[in-house]
Design a protein around this nucleic acid. Sequence first.
RNA 1: GCAAGAAUGGCGGAAUAGGUAGACGCGCUACUUUGAGGGGGUAGUGAAUAUAUAUUCGUGGGAGUUCAAGUCUCCUUUCUUGCACCA
Length: 800
Amino acid sequence: MYNFKKIEKKWQEHWDKNNTFKTEIDNDKKKFYMLVEFPYPSGEGLHVGHGRVYTASDVQARFRRALGFNVLFPMGWDSFGSPAEHYAIQNHIHPKEAVTRNIEVFRGQMKSLGLSVDWNREFATTDPDYYKWTQWQFLQFYKHGMAYKAKKDINWCPNCKIGLSNEDASGGVCERCGTKVVQKEKEQWMLRMSDYAEELLDGLEDTKFNNRTKIAQVNWIGKSTGAEVDFSLKGLDDKLKIYTTRCDTLFGVTFMVIAPEHPLIEKYKDRIKNIKEVSEYQEQAKSKSEFERTELVKDKTGVCLDGIVAINPVNNKEIPIWISDYVMMSYGTGAIMAVPAHDQRDYDFAKKYGIDIIEVIKGGDISKCAYTEDGEMVNSGFLNGITNKKDSIEKMLDYLVEKKIGKRKTNYRLQDWIFSRQRFWGEPIPIVNCPKCGYVPLDEKDLPLLLPDVAEYEPTDNGESPLAKISEWVNTTCPKCGGAATRETDTMPNWAGSSWYWLRYMDPHNAREFASKEAMNYFGKVDLYDGGMEHATRHLLYARFWNQFLYNIGLVPNKEPFEVRISHGMILASDGEKMSKSKGNTVNPNEMIRNYGADALRTYEMFIGDYSKDASWSENGLRGCFKFLNRVYTLKDKVNEKNGYSEELETIIHKTIKKVTEDLTNLDYNTAVSALMILLNEMEKSSSITKDEYRVLLQLLNPIAPHITEELNEECKLGEELSKSSWPIYDEDKTVSEKVEIGVQINGKLRDTITVLKSSSKEELEQEALKSEIIKKWIEGKEIVKVIAVPGRIVNIVIK
RNA sequence: GCAAGAAUGGCGGAAUAGGUAGACGCGCUACUUUGAGGGGGUAGUGAAUAUAUAUUCGUGGGAGUUCAAGUCUCCUUUCUUGCACCA
């Protein structure tokens, strides 16, 4: 068993001492920017899932360096967030203390994994030097009219007295105390992200994100094209505006539905005879969390407005108006036209309340709601007889525009970004509220606006941020008029700090600007961004939005920040379940490193399976990789004094260089390890190997297992330090041996194999195949219909 | 419900462009080495039939295209992920 403890410690200290992985701008070299999502430094430390991701990124960094790139491979900490705040509340210490401690642990663990990170560039989002620029960028949003304050419903825990994000309120209950969450209206800072919907969609064309990620983004933006149609209200000089993607079904409308929050109700409350019932319903809808409203999909409820009736603009029919919580105020106009014959939700509602169902597209089964794409239009006046959905929509749109009762309209699911949190542990929003001047941004020279050092972080009773209680911090003077004013007490969401961190890595110590133009021009886009699928929508969208905004105001050189985005799979426990403390199925990476070494852990995490897919942990698998490294180590005894490649190993060496090079390029880490195992197996069969042969094996293995390979390279005096050496090259012609074995089939079934020269022609292959005794036996007495011979691949003889 | 992806031995997983399915590893079996071990080595290991040579079957299921299908087309089942009363 090789002494991995000693070797790994030695090389980690060597890299630290020599600043081996320090990156600087070098205009003579092409850059490669490898970015991996920075972690939230929790109290738990790294788990083996982190190990897989950081190892894979490190393999890329080391590989690209060997290929001659100037690699930027930084690491930092996404250290704002509620766990640190909870910890602070319980222990009455400033969250920055817990953060500092946790970062120490994380950094130590990463170093013990042997990551080739440039630690000179490390920072945390909670560093005032960093969040100064987060605040500065917020002010740019504000100054460009992209930040505004608006009343919004938020998830509110009446017990903890705190606003919760949707994630923290999943299941409709407070994540911390289990209390049912209610909706509460609050004034919130918003960023106009919906203005960027089209640009965010278009920008995807300029990226090489994997398909899954692109689709997730497209779905999240949720572009839909349709029409807005005005329904007049009987006896009133007013209209009800609805949004629909299927205006072709207008003749099938039998009722309207508006969201419970729709302003129409307040406006005409005197006319609505059953206003009491309506108000009760509104209250009930309000007390439901967003979760409940969307979960109870099947059970539709509603109240019909008694006293207001709409008129269908295409046939002047009177139509009742209902309120129901299956219509959301936040999408479209908060009102819909209901076509129960052709929409499942409308159908369910109509069935429950006994509303008419009118078929307008023939072909489906009306008794259970028909999703009809194309069918003949019926009961539809001027649309009757049309059999194509697109045509009938177009004809209706023309009609609506001509009669001035509607227009084309594109809608997006994407909404503005709620940018306020009522929390302590976030970037303070650098705005002052002056009774005279209104909202006034802080002067940029007064940034960073620091979080105060106090000992209490409990939330307030009224839903304000804990900062609101700290009067000496809140009370200030107006930067504009100098009069008494108060600070904004909301802080930024956790997503803020991660929305531009890749820019700061390029120039992390810059005190004058968030990053210099020179650094941003040189390092450019992130070449490869690795992260979890759970961030493929929000984080990635926020980051792209933020960057596009900075680009549009001329502060960054590229509109899209990331060239390639990949998403890795999770490491599951050996039982196939998610690892969790409560299940007791977690694996401690420290323990694995202690027992088998970082190199074995790294090798195993690369070998475990397809990097983009989830994989189950197996300590036996890790042991297999440990064994592999031990065999690589033992192989040193076979190294002779010769250079060059022996005839025996030449082909397999060229083949392996090619395979590993391609696999690392394509992120197929598992097959790269497998190819190296095959190479080792072959080398072990030889009585001795040359120095160059051993060095190639070590070089190819170096990105994956950097410590042991450096050690062996040094010990056997094979050449320059591997982390400074360039990647081995291969000769395509030498990747296949002169003689190849190919299969011979009879009617598509394998019957024999023959060994032929790789250059053999079709005719030679055919001749050779027919010489085989086994083949002769099979074709005896049969008629050969034809022979297919594909050089280098197969011979297939078709007989009758 | 919508969208995307996946399904291959006892297990994790390979298979370039349709061309010898199961590479590589784990596990298991036999032998061997050592004082012992979750140690080292050698050989075997998809299933069935067979003394052996060998034959048949085999990539979730069903059809199809082709000389040839894990791979392409259509249908279908199951699972995973993302979004979800989005009008």
